[in-house]
C-alpha cells in the first residue's frame, strides 16, 4: 500500500505544553484512517498539522516532518494555498461561511481560479449530489447557509471541502454535533469517499471508528500508542492501554 502522508518524528508544543510527542506514522492512500483517543490527547492538533491549519494557533511550535506525496509540507517554500487545496478539512462544528449555499461551495473553486459560471454551477451541483443535499436545496441555492439545519450545514461543509478537488480529506469529529440519523448518513458518505480520497477522521466514538475506517491509530497523552488495521486494533490490540481504552475502561 502506497502511503499518501508520512509523518516523521512530529512534535508540537503550545507554549511550554508538549502536546504531540514524537509521532511517526504512514497514512495510506484512498483508505479511511481513524484517529481515536480520549479527549485532550492531541487528536485534533494532529489533524491540524496535516494541512498546517495549526499555523493559525498563537505561540505554537512544530518540529518534525510531514511528507505529502514525499514532499515535506513544513519546508519553507511551500505554498499554503496549494497545500490546503490538496488537503481539505471538515470541522467538528459545522462552520458555513456567511454567504449563500451556492457561494459556500463556489468560494473554494473561485479562490483557486475557476471563473467560468457554468463550470462553477456544475461543481456546485456535483458536490451537493455527492453529499446527498442536492434535492433538498436545489431550489434555494441563494438562501443563506445559516438557514439549513445543523446536519445539512455539516454536509454542506463536506461538499465545500470536496469542491476544491482535494486529495486528502481531514475530518475532525464530523458527527459530534449531529443526531444519529444524520450521523449514519455521514458515515455512509465517508465509506463512499474513500474510493476517491484519502480520508483521515478523528473521532471519540469507537463504534464509528470501527464502522468506517480501514486503519486506526490510538493516541494517548500526545503519544501514538498503537497503529494498524482497524480489525486488528479492535479485536486484538497489542498494547494494554489500547485494550483498556477500547473496552471503555477510561476515556
Amino acid at each position: 500500500m502506497k502511503p499518501k502522508i508520512e509523518v516523521e518524528n512530529l512534535n508540537v508544543w503550545y507554549g511550554a505544553n508538549h502536546v504531540l510527542k514524537d509521532i511517526s506514522m504512514e497514512i495510506p492512500e484512498k483508505r479511511v484512517t481513524a484517529i481515536i483517543g480520549p479527549s485532550g490527547c492531541g487528536k485534533s492538533t494532529f489533524l491540524m498539522t496535516l494541512n498546517r491549519l495549526i499555523d493559525l494557533v498563537n505561540g505554537v511550535c512544530v518540529k518534525g516532518k510531514v511528507l505529502l506525496d514525499g514532499k515535506n509540507i513544513y519546508n519553507p517554500g511551500i505554498d499554503l494555498t496549494e497545500l490546503r487545496k490538496k488537503v481539505g478539512m471538515v470541522f467538528q462544528k459545522p462552520n458555513p461561511l456567511p454567504k449563500s449555499i451556492y457561494e459556500n461551495i463556489a468560494y473554494g473553486p473561485k479562490i483557486h481560479g475557476v471563473k467560468d459560471r457554468k463550470t462553477l454551477d456544475s461543481i456546485v451541483e456535483k458536490c451537493l449530489r455527492v453529499v446527498g443535499l442536492w434535492d433538498d436545496v436545489k431550489d434555494r441555492l441563494r438562501d443563506s447557509a445559516f438557514e439549513l439545519s445543523v446536519g445539512q450545514q455539516q454536509r454542506l461543509c463536506i461538499a465545500r471541502a470536496l469542491a476544491v478537488k482535494p486529495e486528502v480529506l481531514l475530518m475532525d469529529e464530523p458527527c459530534s454535533a449531529l443526531d444519529p440519523t444524520t450521523t449514519r448518513k455521514i458515515e455512509e458518505l465517508i465509506q463512499t469517499l474513500k474510493n476517491d480520497y484519502t480520508v483521515v477522521v478523528v473521532t471519540h466514538n469507537m463504534q464509528q471508528a470501527n464502522r468506517v475506517s480501514n486503519y486506526t491509530a490510538f493516541l494517548y497523552l500526545g503519544k501514538l500508542i498503537e497503529y494498524g488495521p482497524t480489525q486488528e486494533i479492535f479485536t486484538n490490540p497489542k498494547n494494554k492501554l489500547t485494550k483498556d481504552y477500547i473496552n471503555g475502561k477510561f476515556g
Binding site: 499554503l80 490546503r84 481539505g88 473554494g108 479562490i111
Partner: peptide, 22 residues
C-alpha cells in the same frame, strides 16, 4: 466568528482574501 476565518483558510484562501471576502 473565528469559524469563518478557519473555514476559509482551510479551503486554501490566502489571508488577505479571507479578510477581503469573509
Amino acid at each position: 466568528p473565528k469559524d469563518f476565518r478557519v473555514a476559509a483558510e482551510a479551503l486554501g484562501a490566502p489571508k488577505w482574501k479571507t479578510i477581503k471576502d469573509i
